[in-house]
């Protein structure tokens, strides 16, 4: 090999590694831009809302949040649950009745645990995630959908 060939190889290696670095940087930038463009906040009613633990209902009682379309149910001293009041048929807010829930729009009927017992609703009402937060707060996530009888420790 001649001297100039050696230089050419070095040139190739240097160019290759710099371009490689630039490529890594470009990929990272792309990722960062993608993350930057992803929305981190909401403008409607937030999906999660906080309530102080002291606001919880007594055992056996329910507490209605009409704005957030959620009913809180105190199951026992230590357990509680949150049910969504959004009808699984077309999204109306269901009414709390003696036998469970009833949708005023198309007559879907749910029993006390949210299971469909009549009408066009395709599935039972959503049970929601309840998370304790520091400072004696509970956070209810109206975007979640859990199985029936998903109780949470208070």
């Amino acid at each position: 090999m001649t001297q100039s060939d050696k230089m050419k190889r070095r040139e190739f290696l240097t160019m290759g590694s710099s371009l490689g670095l630039l490529g890594v940087a470009a990929a990272a930038t792309g990722g960062a831009v993608f993350k930057y463009l992803m929305p981190v906040v909401t403008y409607g009613t937030p999906k999660k809302f906080k309530i102080p633990k002291s606001d919880l209902p007594d055992v056996g009682d329910e507490l209605l949040f009409s704005d957030q379309k959620v009913v809180l149910r105190r199951h026992s001293d230590t357990e509680m649950a949150a049910l969504s009041l959004v009808c699984t048929h077309l999204g109306c807010t269901v009414n709390v009745v003696e036998t469970g829930f009833q949708c005023p729009c198309h007559g879907s009927q749910y029993d006390i645990k949210g299971t469909v017992v009549g009408g066009p609703a395709p599935q039972s009402l959503a049970w929601l995630t309840v998370k304790p937060l520091p400072g004696n707060y509970l956070e209810i996530d109206t975007g979640s959908r859990l199985k029936e009888n998903s109780y949470f420790k208070v």
């Binding site: 240097t14 710099s18 630039l22 890594v24 940087a25 990272a28 930038t29 990722g31 960062a32 930057y36």
Partner: peptide, 18 residues
């Protein structure tokens, strides 16, 4: 090479900050 390393370093730093 040095310029590339500095540029990439600065870029990664700003990405890490983000």
């Amino acid at each position: 090479l040095a310029a590339c390393v500095i540029a990439v370093g600065a870029m990664l730093l700003s990405i890490a900050k983000l």
